[in-house]
């Protein structure tokens, strides 16, 4: 049994310690907001927070996740209120197909938590996820908007 804490809730999983966190979230806990895109850490669709830091969950094992605080897109809202990034995503009308956006929002949330005044350079360096629909310009705007709201 492996104990992990997801969005504040404890779960005991009967799974291999080698299983990537992504698949435990999606296929065992049915937390499907975290997406599968490449499985090798190359696209960022599966980004979650582990103790507050952005982690690509397809390349992070259950063994590594033991006892750590994991937050997924489903747990980003606080007391039923949208995270400022989620609100900014709506205000800027960012998503198209939307598939990459959970990962984009989680990566951006970790960035702003770390660097509340992230400039374009910091965004370029830290937001390396793929959006096949090409929403990058609006993601950038939404991050700036959320940063303003949060300051």
């Amino acid at each position: 049994m492996i104990e992990i804490i997801v969005n504040g809730k404890r779960h005991s999983l009967d799974a291999s310690p080698d299983m990537p966190l992504l698949w435990a979230l999606r296929d065992i806990l049915s937390l499907t907001g975290t997406k599968f895109g490449c499985g090798i850490g190359a696209c960022g669709a599966c980004t979650v927070h582990v103790d507050g830091a952005a982690v690509r969950s397809c390349s992070f094992t259950l063994d590594e996740a033991r006892g750590r605080q994991i937050t997924t897109i489903e747990g980003l809202q606080q007391n039923g209120r949208l995270h400022p990034l989620q609100a900014a995503w709506i205000a800027e009308q960012v998503p198209q197909c939307g598939y990459c956006q959970s990962g984009m929002i989680m990566a951006s949330a970790a960035l702003l938590a770390d660097n509340p005044a992230a400039d374009d350079n910091a965004i370029d360096k830290n937001i390396t996820n793929i959006c096949r629909c090409g929403t990058y310009g609006h993601i950038r705007k939404a991050i700036h908007r959320a940063a303003r709201e949060m300051s």
Binding site: V94, P95, G98, Q101, S102
Partner: peptide
Amino acid sequence: PARLDIPAKVTGKARYGIDIR
């Protein structure tokens, strides 16, 4: 007007084929 599909796409609630359970 604001797109009707966007709120579900920022909360992880939007269901894609891969999310069917």
